[in-house]
Design a protein around this nucleic acid. Structure first.
Lengths: 206, 206, 206, 206
DNA sequence: AATGAATGAGGTTTCATTCAT
DNA sequence: GATGAATGAAACCTCATTCAT
């Protein structure tokens, strides 16, 4: 089965990554064995190792794909002409995550963040991608400031960092404590984001 | 020999947990082998297994100890008569973490959160302890509301959840992206927490 | 089965080395798998790895043991007060090899020499032990010179090297070509060593 | 297209054997993988397998080529009308080996000898070729006897065997112990071969 | 003639855990 | 209470080889 098309190669990679995703979400990175992945992918060991040099590479690739999904989500929002108010948008983004293409990045993200502490290469890759997320959220803050729904005195970069932290904790609590905690956070964020603007109507932001 | 034995037992447990802490912080839960722990503790396999039934128990115990450190930190703050304003307190808590008894819970927390996704028993334990954290932060919110530095219209429980999420993301970004990100978050949180009150001075929430 | 005597440890090492010897002689270093050794030794994988850190260590140890047997053979000869004439002694040494303790170093030596080309650590170890062999053969040459059965004009160190080379080739041909070749070499060596002394008497080379 | 094809086949075979030679000399037969050979040859797996049925065939072919180089060397010497004295010729042959066509058979010979112990087919092939070497060295001995520089009482076949053993050990020690040992052997062989003839002249050692 | 993707057995090694001493 | 030798399943990965294209 030689000389195979580029599409074939890409499809195989995808097939393997999808299988890895399923395994990782089910059992975690470290309780997933490579044979688990082979079985899930329906491929032989050699076939998988042709496309990925080892387990670490699989983890890195999964980390990239899952972070990319958040970026795609943000890009889709940023592409719109008008943005919903922040207290609508932020919960919407978090709630959109599980629906992304049938695979839920939120189920793997905590593992990725944890793994960065052991694997400097992964840490660098993740830091880079979180930088991309940060860029987009900074832009979002600027647009909100321009629209007058965010205090123009705030530094958009700093604020974007806070938003990232919030989203990360949101994901963790969803995973750890379930839906109830998630809904509490949603309510809390809504209230926090909604209040200040009303407050400001009578004079702030001058 | 009940008393001596009890002290001895406790000392041994501590010795083992300290060793496990060092190993886990260095290599992560899954890349730490039990022999690694034996060596770090200077004990034999049998000795460790006398005090902990297995690796999972070690992980659970570490998770409990590290979460407890955050609770202790909060209790210390709550014990004070007067609280610093929130924009001072929140960064202070996060910055105190690494100094807690020479062991930095922030270095293990992401691993614990990640691990809960695979281990329901650990998930339950962590959920319980995060519940304790939530209780304390809720109380904190109430006191801030009573002191007039937090919008009384906010639900203190929901707000506490948001604060937990924020702290979790804060810890993750510190680990993943380093000090710069940490400082950005600190600045962002300070600005966000400081603004609304000023803003509100001119008549909010009436 | 803890806290075991030094003899026990030594016996285990011997047990493993004996098993490795059998396997290596049967199938060669590289066609012998570690499971082969486990089975031959009647031990588990873990047990073998407790005593030897890996396959390379097993090979090195075997190389040392087998070279040591040649050294022991030489020492036994050197301990005698009177030596048989060289044309008797040299074939006797080679023929004694297979009988050494039931294990035939000649069956492993070619593999060891070959392996030194890939493994510098083994090369160093073997070079050291061949140095020991050389010391003893040099001493032997000196004693033959003192006894008047070896040309005193020859450098004993150089001559000892030649003898080592001869023995090595002897072993190789025995292994590769069988008994016939071995006997031819024996006859050739006998004639060569016996002649010169006699030969000189009648003034050949005319 | 018979002629062109035949040349092509031969060129490909050579290309593959050269690559195998390089790999085998670098890492040994057993630590060289077929993929190593593919890469070194710049060919695909299928291409190599078209010309050689497997790895064993590659090893056998290499063994043949390298032994043939020694035979060629001997033939070249035998073709000359006058021979240098044995104490010149023998070291010269050994020293010529590394220069043979840019590839040094001495670097592979010990591996070949070692391998014969595991592979009866290879053993037979090597025995055959060493027989060819033996024929030539026997002839050489006869010519030396005819020239009066070798004791006519020696059996030329036995003596030739001894010479082969000597050359084999010479090669091994060069590989294992380096140049110093090689030079010692050379000096030793020169002295041993030169003395007897001279020795007889003055009736020493009486 | 040549490619190279795919196979899957098998290689070495590690690890959590037990239990005789 | 403590030791540490022993187990043996299982992990990761490589390799010689095949064969559809």
């Amino acid at each position: 089965m030689p000389k195979v098309s580029e599409e074939h190669r890409e499809a195989r990679r995808r097939q393997i990554l999808d299988a890895a995703w399923v395994c990782f979400a089910r059992n975690g990175f470290h309780k997933t064995s490579m044979p688990d992945v082979f079985a899930e992918a329906g491929l032989s060991a050699g076939a998988v190792y042709r496309y990925f040099p080892g387990k670490e590479a699989l983890i890195t690739a999964i980390a990239e794909v899952s972070t990319q999904q958040l970026i795609d989500l943000l890009d889709a929002r940023l592409a719109a002409d008008v943005l919903p108010p922040p207290e609508e948008l932020l919960p919407a983004i978090v709630e959109d995550l599980p629906a992304t293409g049938g695979t839920d990045p939120a189920a793997l993200a905590p593992q990725v963040w944890s793994e960065t502490m052991r694997d400097p290469r992964l840490a660098a890759a993740v830091a880079g991608m979180l930088g991309d997320v940060h860029l987009r959220l900074t832009e979002l803050c600027r647009r909100y400031q321009a629209a007058g729904v965010l205090d123009p005195g705030l530094d958009p970069g700093d604020t974007a960092r806070v938003v990232i932290a919030l989203i990360q904790g949101w994901i963790i609590q969803w995973n750890t404590m379930g839906l109830a905690a998630h809904q509490q956070i949603t309510a809390g964020v809504r209230a926090l984001l909604a209040r200040p603007r009303n407050a400001g109507q009578s004079g702030q932001d001058g």
